[in-house]
Write a protein that binds this DNA or RNA. Sequence first.
DNA 1: TCCATATTTCAAATAACGATGAAGTATGGA
DNA 2: TCCATACTTCATCGTTATTTGAAATATGGA
Lengths: 116, 116
Amino acid sequence: MADPVNVVRALGALAQDHRLAAFRLLVQAGAQGLAAGELALRVGVMPSSMSFHLAQLANAGLVDQRREGRSIIYTARFAAMNALMGYLTANCCNGVPCGIAAPLCDDQPLAQRGAA
Amino acid sequence: MADPVNVVRALGALAQDHRLAAFRLLVQAGAQGLAAGELALRVGVMPSSMSFHLAQLANAGLVDQRREGRSIIYTARFAAMNALMGYLTANCCNGVPCGIAAPLCDDQPLAQRGAA
DNA sequence: TCCATATTTCAAATAACGATGAAGTATGGA
DNA sequence: TCCATACTTCATCGTTATTTGAAATATGGA
């Protein structure tokens, strides 16, 4: 993700309301993930549209997919999001961490924070 | 920027190689900023294209502009970038700060960090 | 005032995006 | 095997994005 090309791809993947909504749901769902149909239902788009958007998120490396019975389960790739945030922090915030609302400074050593 | 609509707009503004390059240059330039023509030159696009891209960044609230003689000087709006990072941290990283290279945990109380 | 510089605005062309519905693929169960 | 479910792929269409060059606007200096 140090590559600006991948950064632009990831930003573009998140720069669409339906995709941002889907990704947020996946982040909330965690490792368990959500089925494509469930995402379509919750985001409020047709299954084929959701498939299109999920393909873009996958192409940007922001989500993983696995089959589970008839469903295809998508999960957020936290490592990719981490890398994106790292790039933005380093290149678009002058290296100063931006917008940190509720850090865990007193609980964990620095090295463990921000790890996927 | 707590509004997803503005977040999508800001992400979309950065999701283009020429605009990301221009914004990075503006971040490096700091409060001094850079003229539109200088940006066009450094990014390697025609002046009219640069103007188009700068308008998009301005529309997303990511840059400010001021006239200085014949030039129009653009500057990065760090507050907006802060807010964008805050939204992503809160909504796309499960509230866990992502990709932080060099935090300031021991230097400032929590309440002061991340403030726009 | 006249001209050069610095940018923006406009119109036109091409390319990419996003939605829709139909058709195709894969899985599970009767 | 046959059918229903769960997704994806495809073709199409309308919208939006991006680039280019020409024209318009604003500033500064002779």
